[in-house]
Design a protein around this nucleic acid. Sequence first.
DNA 1: CTGGATTATTTCTATTTCGAAAGAATTACG
DNA 2: CGTAATTCTTTCGAAATAGAAATAATCCAG
Lengths: 397, 397
Amino acid sequence: MSRDELQSLLDDVNADHAEARVVRVLSERGAVSANEIARATGLARSTISQALAELRGADVIVEAASADLARGVGRPAASFALNPRAGTCLGLHLSLDEIKLIAADVSHSVIFEKNVALGRDYAPAEAVEAARVALRESCREAGVAWSSVIGVGLSFSGPVAPDGRVQRASIIPTWAGVNLGEAFGPALERPIFADNESNCSAIAEMTWGAAIGVEDFVLFKIDIGVGGAIVANGRVLTGIAGAGGEFGHMTLDPQGELCRCGNRGCLELTASLNPAISVASRLAGRPLGVDEFIERAAAGDVGCRRLLADTAERAGRGLGMIGAILNPGLILIGGRAALAGEALLRPLIASYERHTLIKREETPPAQRVRIEIAKYPRNHALLGAVALVLRRHGRLS
Amino acid sequence: MSRDELQSLLDDVNADHAEARVVRVLSERGAVSANEIARATGLARSTISQALAELRGADVIVEAASADLARGVGRPAASFALNPRAGTCLGLHLSLDEIKLIAADVSHSVIFEKNVALGRDYAPAEAVEAARVALRESCREAGVAWSSVIGVGLSFSGPVAPDGRVQRASIIPTWAGVNLGEAFGPALERPIFADNESNCSAIAEMTWGAAIGVEDFVLFKIDIGVGGAIVANGRVLTGIAGAGGEFGHMTLDPQGELCRCGNRGCLELTASLNPAISVASRLAGRPLGVDEFIERAAAGDVGCRRLLADTAERAGRGLGMIGAILNPGLILIGGRAALAGEALLRPLIASYERHTLIKREETPPAQRVRIEIAKYPRNHALLGAVALVLRRHGRLS
DNA sequence: CTGGATTATTTCTATTTCGAAAGAATTACG
DNA sequence: CGTAATTCTTTCGAAATAGAAATAATCCAG
């Protein structure tokens, strides 16, 4: 295969030769040994050997600093990663009042990270222009040629349909109906990938976090909203309209309070951090931020601890239902509530146990649900946005 | 490849040549054209052509009566199916007070079907012995050599762990903790496959029913219990302990009535047919059966219709949550309630719409959830049991 | 410090699979 | 009818892949 063909393998999603599959595995996992590549692709070791030789010849991959972590007996395995100079992936997170930027090379190293503040309820065109300027500039500063950008991943705070359209139910009302691919594609002139925030977080956990190598898990996010993502067979279940994993909008009480989504009694109304923070603020005599509240709870403030435990109790009810529906092997707790660690986890697990079908003690260890804190609880959907590009997930154009 | 090797392809799950993959596709789908096989396997048409020639030479496959359904322009495609004489699959459904038997050849034709009544709460050993005797005898009568039986699929009314163990939460209390593979394996001396009833129904719908070719859907069963199954990427999500899809045991009201599963306020308590039938029976002055109740509702009895609609309203609440969590493209309604057709479907869809996040009218048609009646609403998990064997799903030994 | 045990990697050849082109069976249309 | 268009199927040489055996790099035990 020619050098040019090999170097363009990063763009070609559909190619199905040994070389292409090796590149895809490296793109998804970072540094990997030849043996692992063989297992992941299902190809023979000899085939991998040949492919690696060719790819190395074309400077597409490099030998990685061997992570001698589990160094046993026998010849140690060499690790390979994509040549960092072979391309750059950009990520963009669109949140309530700012956009966050990130760039990573194809070997999974972060090159730069940056925030751009915007007014509340900013218009799509504003964000597109701000993103264009900031990305171009940051790339120039970091010495990244725009032509070497493989794609831009977008993380959005709300359901994103498979065609890139933002659903009404999003946090930022001005964006309802906007097609992210059509909005950002012309301005950025690079392939666009997009998914909702929680799905991005799940992908970040799969790529760098607490779910590396896990094919089936659920991410449950507790922050000022409640959301999540479902991963089955190694793929994020986005749902037919991109609304999979919207745990916050399970209707717990059809006669309950009105939710911003237009329904009543959603889980989010009781299980997000908002009610707890309201009460804590009243007691403190001044408005508390999310971080301050969590810090107080983690530090042992009995009031905040109890408020957090009550939140966990209510969230655990929803989580128990998710357990009855999906019976996942691993549930990762994300969102800033997870920063409280055990103070959240203990009452949450207790509540889960009380509300779910299969009880822990009557199940052999291998079939038990593990509930753990995610590695990136603090909104690191941004990392996931860049992983969208690395995994070629949610491609729009 | 030798004739013997080709003929044993049906037993070898792990083989990964063109011939093996062709056999597997035919086993899963029945009669298929060469072109479809190529698409399903991802192999080149020329490879399929060669493989088919070899398999035909070894009498493993036969040319099927060409189902000239969609006969367009151009040369018509020939269909192939596994040679019915190449093997037989048995299925077994273990219900409350009887076991049901079925046999089908590998081309998906049913050979015989039979019920064996047992006392309520029968013991496992009883069922094993009854199954052994009835299956052996029926096979002899039908001229099926026991050695030609590829495997026996078991459908069980309750969660079945991946290792074959029956969970406590099952309908038949005497079976809690029993390992289905260990119980049936020695007596039947054939490979055993097992899964819970609803998962089997889902597989039946995928193989013969309303979900042929659909990779992602949810089956929601409303009968004297409430249950279901989730299919993602063409695979049934069984969950880490086999309790995936247990929609009936979502906790709607933590302070509600006690459920047989040990929790309170489960969906099943309000959304199954039981409450409606109780009221209808009181009004009728005598106990009504499920079928009678459904017939009355379908025939236009206003009381029964309203009771059914109320049930649908309550079930729709649970279904709406499933919609928020999974956002599936297709929801099939199974169980005997589905026999009422539109009388159930209309209020169910209305309730779903009211309780789910993404509303129908604000979604383009391609992203809308379709809610339809399953093809086999009347407990045809039995068909699914035999499909377990055809699809090599849930293998225990 | 040396030889055996263990695991990783490459080499070489046989086999499998692919892609392009030819051939076959049918419908559409003049 | 006959020819063109369309679609399915097979053939055959080229390319990719797998499997077995050889080679390499390390640990471990004496």
